[in-house]
Write a protein that binds this DNA or RNA. Structure first.
Lengths: 334, 334
DNA sequence: GTGAAAGCGCTAACAC
DNA sequence: GTGTTAGCGCTTTCAC
């Protein structure tokens, strides 16, 4: 696309200098009422829109913030995104992109930070380690949201996943359940939030004097179908669990669906709890009891703090914990 | 963020001119092996990353394409996004942003087109009318995906919503259902896809000699809870429908959930079909029969054609129809 | 209150 | 194969 009308054209047409046009555009200095309205008229007539590439180059800022999402499938992100956009408005735009959880893609997106296409980036789940993140943080404005990274001294907004899982499992324990299954992700390459949730599960059990047994833990991927498999596995045990805590709603949905197909009454004979409060959990039959993250608040907070960091001279590297909430639905109504 | 190391610094440190550094960066002209590796070393040592603001200003292009989504809640978009990114790679980045279906927000995002922050935009659902779109298309590179706009002469990629709905309803008719309900959105401000689906519904009925009756049409919003209400309404009729076609899976889920609560056997006594094949429809109990859009292909196609338009001199304004597919699940297993 | 002019970082035409 | 230089569109300092 060739450049159409530029500030120069406007200046010429309005019979003023480019400096004056610029002043009108930015309200950056006193311009006589007359001149201003004359310029504005020309702008309208010519359909002029300032080229931000020039402006950004000159000011060395773009007023764009990049948010890197692992995927757009996860409906949890939509609230966070809304919060981010609201906090950014009207000075910044939040651009989204997805890494699909690939390190390579994530790095390619971070290039936008390096090449100044954006002024800052928020990572909602990252494949980078603490060292890399700390290094990045020295030169650029970044923040983490949802997923903390151990030892990373980077502004982070999240819930306390350990405590949230603890609360969920404690709910089961209070109802007298003693055999409680956990469906979580396997391997240590995974997100820290999963590990934190597992810790919360173990702490709740031990508080009730229940030693944790590896056989009550099913490790798999994040997929719905893994939830189905988890239920089959648990039901093959001598003493199947009376309740199952899943680290995501999708897994819980799989568990419940399989239970339904196998004729196991969820909510009475078997209680199930998920995590994230995605829209599905309300819509499911039975409704899925789950842990809700304050997505909108998280998004708003992370951008708010990030902008402070960008303005200020001293960077805030806090880990900000927002409150979670246990939402009780039919899958735990016994 | 102040500028750190620039092409000038690299040139000085490497003892060459900026032009040579630029040549090395872009492989744009022959540079002796020696010089090139020397420059590359300096680049690495100094941690230099080219400032795209300079480059973009000079070249009058950003290699960024904006995709405007109505929301990120709709999981249909994730496949489309993947397709778009794959088609754009490695020459372009696809940036996402959400309009929340507000005209104001959409316009604000389109500013990125006007101010040259992006080279092109794909609208996945728009609030703009044909005239506005045609005007935009004259000056900028735009395309529509998923949602066509009547009389808009703009590159569009979509399925044939009318035919898809026709297929779905015909499936019911073939099974001998004669009373078929439709759950759709109300008002004429709505997306054309809904109207197209309604037309398909009517065509199928009339082909089977069944006049369409307004009482079998429930008009509401897009929300899951509206599906619940729809079922209650239909069941209050003298002769409730034997099958219900919903213009979205979310509405179908609501219908099914309410049917379950009211003790109506879905799949036998009542058949239900949704639209979009969101992940929920597989996970639901029973699984939701639905129409699937080839999201990945749609995304790939729209970016592919858009890039052609950007390169070429003649713009393609075709309406490209991709094949839909009916996916049969438990909600229609009678 | 306004204009002239420098310069942000980069690419590309041109000269050698 | 390499360097010099103009200039992309804009903001901003410095005069006046």
């Amino acid at each position: 696309m060739p450049m159409s009308v530029t500030i120069k054209d406007v200046a010429k047409a309005a019979g003023v200098s480019v400096a004056t046009v610029s002043r009108v555009l930015n309200n950056s200095a006193a311009v006589s009422e007359e001149t201003a309205s004359a310029v504005n008229n020309v702008i309208k007539e010519m359909g002029y829109s300032p080229n931000f590439l020039g402006r950004n180059l000159r000011k060395c800022e773009t007023n764009n913030i990049l948010a890197i999402l692992p995927s757009t499938e996860h409906t949890v992100y939509s609230d966070i995104i809304k919060g981010m956009q609201d906090a950014a408005y009207p000075n910044y735009d939040v651009l989204l992109s997805t890494s699909n959880s690939y390190l390579g893609t994530e790095m390619r997106l971070l290039d936008m930070l390096f090449n100044r296409t954006v002024d800052a980036a928020v990572l909602l789940g990252t494949q980078l380690d603490a060292q890399k993140l700390n290094e990045l943080d020295k030169q650029y404005n970044i923040a983490l949201c949802c997923e903390r990274v151990s030892d990373a001294k980077v502004l982070t907004v999240s819930i306390n996943n350990e405590a949230a899982a603890y609360d969920a499992v404690k709910m089961f324990l209070k109802r007298g359940k003693t055999r409680i299954g956990l469906v979580t992700t396997g391997g240590n390459t995974d997100a820290l939030s999963s590990a934190d949730r597992e810790k919360g599960y173990i702490r709740a059990l031990s508080e009730y004097g229940i030693g944790f047994e590896e056989k009550y833990i099913y490790r798999c991927s994040y997929d719905y179908s893994d939830g189905c498999k988890a239920l089959k596995y648990f039901m093959s045990l001598d003493k199947p669990p009376q309740a199952i805590f899943c680290i995501s709603d999708l897994l819980a949905a799989g568990v419940i669906k399989q239970a339904f197909m196998d004729g196991i009454a969820v909510g009475s004979k078997l209680e199930v709890c998920g995590f994230d409060n995605i829209s599905l959990s309300e819509m499911y039959t039975p409704g899925i009891t789950t842990v809700s993250q304050p997505g909108y608040e998280m998004g708003k907070t992370v951008i708010g703090k990030l902008l402070e960091n960008m303005r200020g001279t001293e960077k805030n590297h806090d880990m900000i914990i927002l409150p979670h909430k246990l939402i009780i639905r039919g899958s735990t109504q016994s």
